[in-house]
Write a protein that binds this DNA or RNA. Structure first.
Lengths: 253, 253
DNA sequence: ATAATAATATCCATAATACGGAAACTAACT
DNA sequence: AGTTAGTTTCCGTATTATGGATATTATTAT
């Protein structure tokens, strides 16, 4: 009767994850009726679904009677993280071996990027990021590469939610400036973080095409080493690595 | 007809999470038939459930045709982590304010503990652990406090899977030694990490009772400051904090 | 304090949804 | 090329999830 978007999905499963996503979107705490106005599911249905989650530990009920994400999700998230990292690490390793600079992979997490995997450069230079670390989208190479894959409206809402701090004087300061830069990135196929996150650090990044979750990889290092000549070598390698990761991610059915 | 364990849970939801847990248990990659022998679900059912997860991004299918955890779980896990940490942080903060030493909360994640939240001590002493970090159970205060809540059989299988490295000469070396120690912990109500993880560092830890996922909190610092007199103050405070966290976690329906 | 209001939780008849046996298909091994 | 093991699709069946109506509990107003 009702035309469902997906053909053969199990409805209660789809719904339950939709609910979990909504709870996450809302910052971790939601009331039942908030959920029923966000979705167009009737209250009893939501309640039953959530009760199942609560008894299994994937959701919790707070003193407020609000619902929140449950502790057992942590393990699953960790597992997924580890797994994805394992998939990317050989490619990142190859980049580091060829280029000599630190390589990262990150995914979009709501309105920030999360670093999923890192292979540090052999140079004894401190790492600027760490796995699990969250960063803004507008001032990082991976962030901008990811944003360039999205529509302007999505970009606006992400940046509106996350804000636009300016860690250095080179950081992008306005949404218009950012949208312009994203245009350049779309044309060029990769993004450059020109000391926007930290002075003296330059980064080249590229989106992983067709990733289920928006994903990008990057190489970064001191401006002295990471220059135009570096880019000539790095960009094709980044493209190949991104493609390989994409293939591995998307090899379904 | 079939007597289901849980009264009012939504079956497909329960099953789907059972599958995700099994994938995680198996180290992130499973074949369909492995799943069907672990559960007693028929293959078509598992396949349909997984296909739903795959199309939504909560599972992935690898080139091997194996199934793995999907990237969208990362965000949910992060969200749960943040949320739980937020719940514990005021209590940890209170411990640090009263005792002047670093306080942590950790949960059991399969066969290791994961640090969920930390409030560092005001002393300029480096931190030994970081949020998100995984550690063994047998050589940490939180780990032993958590193990003491479990049965001997469960402890044995956890330690068998995780192994028993001995970072210091004070570390517990055998399963029998560990089970004895757990007995003492049960009697006393709290655990002591006596330089077992790192020389010079002592830690008092206590389980959070009735947590949906086994959970413990701790205070730790240099042996010079964290001594018997310290324990007299710390233990009642730990107990109160653990109880408060427990109440907040369990205040359901 | 007490009443009015709004939220959450439970019931239960209905039928739509998920189920799983059987068969088709695909890859891996001999 | 033939065989086996594993994965995927089909489809009739009935079990399972559904959601309108109702009861219950919290919250706010008086």
């Amino acid at each position: 009767m009702a035309e469902k978007a997906a053909g053969g999905g199990v409805q209660s499963v789809e719904r339950v994850f939709e609910l979990l996503e909504l709870i996450t979107d809302a910052g971790g705490e939601v009331t039942l009726s908030e959920l029923s106005s966000s979705t167009d599911l009737p209250l009893p249905t939501i309640h039953r679904l959530l009760r199942t989650l609560v008894t299994k530990g994937y959701a919790r009920q707070l003193p407020n009677r609000r619902y929140a994400l449950g502790p057992r999700l942590i393990r699953l998230g960790e597992g997924a993280n580890k797994q994805l990292g394992a998939l990317a690490r050989p490619q990142l390793k190859h980049l580091v071996d060829s280029l000599g600079e630190t390589s990262n992979m990150a995914v979009l997490d709501s309105d920030m990027v999360i670093y999923i995997a890192q292979v540090p450069s052999p140079h004894s230079m401190r790492m600027f990021t760490e796995v699990g670390r969250r960063a803004h989208t507008h001032d990082t190479g991976v962030g901008k590469a990811i944003l360039a894959q999205l529509g302007d409206d999505a970009v606006r809402s992400i940046v509106a939610r996350a804000g636009m701090p300016t860690p250095t004087e080179k950081s992008i300061k306005s949404i218009d400036e950012l949208l312009e830069e994203l245009g350049r990135i779309r044309g060029r196929g990769y993004s450059i973080d020109e000391q926007e996150q930290e002075l003296g650090v330059r980064c080249f990044a590229m989106a992983v095409p067709n990733a289920p979750t928006p994903t990008a990889i990057s190489v970064s290092g001191p401006v002295s080493r990471v220059d135009e000549r570096f880019a000539e070598k790095a960009v094709p390698l980044l493209r190949a690595a991104a493609q390989t990761i994409s293939d591995e991610l998307n090899l379904a059915s």
